[in-house]
Design a protein around this nucleic acid. Structure first.
Lengths: 113, 113
DNA sequence: TCAGTATATTCGCATTTTAGAATGTACTGA
DNA sequence: TCAGTACATTCTAAAATGCGAATATACTGA
């Protein structure tokens, strides 16, 4: 793999490396939304939302178009939602592993008693 | 989506948000490797590699096991390689879009002449 | 036990990221 | 033209990240 590709991937990941930006992307899965709606739904500070949107724009994760007074945002590529879906599965598999671990520890400590 | 899930996803992305860590993960796709081999193949400073490995461990992206003198690393879950594959496609689609754009600009400037 | 090897951790420093406050810009409707 | 709305940008301080140098830890074989 070329170093450019690595840098590119790292940039995408970095763009998504914040809970607020994840929330924005997840919200945009359902379709285009003006910035104001995002602020409202996610209960963000206006400036903060705008900064996170700037990051997502810079990393080419979202695109925006101006419509009158508002700026509508949408996901640039649906592939990203697939990535998020994969991670959801990963998350749950981790969760169940952790649950199993806890259970084992519990049984262990019960046995020791 | 719960905020815990968002934080989890953000953590994964953050763990992958560096070209060196991407390189490590891509290298580990082929299988388990001791830290030293990674240092060698990727031409990293030993301390630096160790720090990046610590990040990957903290985010649960890799697991390690000690074998004698060495520490072998491997990917915790193959799902992550799927994520990287998806991004590779994304990368190339972006590339070709950029190429198209450049071509259009070129044709435009040719027309203007 | 001791030198050598493999890896991890700590330290100091520079850079980046983040949040909120303040301010700027662009558009709309009266 | 002007007040109001929707966003973006800039500034500042705090926190997090990244690097290499130095140091620490753990294991091996003599």
């Amino acid at each position: 793999m070329t170093s450019a590709l690595r840098q590119f991937k790292a940039d995408i990941f970095q763009g998504l490396a914040h809970p607020t930006r994840i929330a924005i992307v997840e919200t945009l899965r359902e379709g285009e939304l003006p910035a104001g709606k995002l602020v409202e739904r996610l209960e963000l500070e206006q400036a903060n939302a705008s900064q996170h949107l700037a990051v997502l724009r810079a990393k080419q994760i979202v695109v925006s178009r101006k419509l009158g007074n508002q700026v509508y945002y949408s996901l640039r590529d649906p592939v990203l939602t697939k990535v998020l879906d994969l991670l959801r599965r990963y998350f749950y598999s981790q969760l169940s592993e952790t649950a199993n671990m806890l259970e084992e520890i519990e049984q262990e400590s019960a046995r020791v008693k």
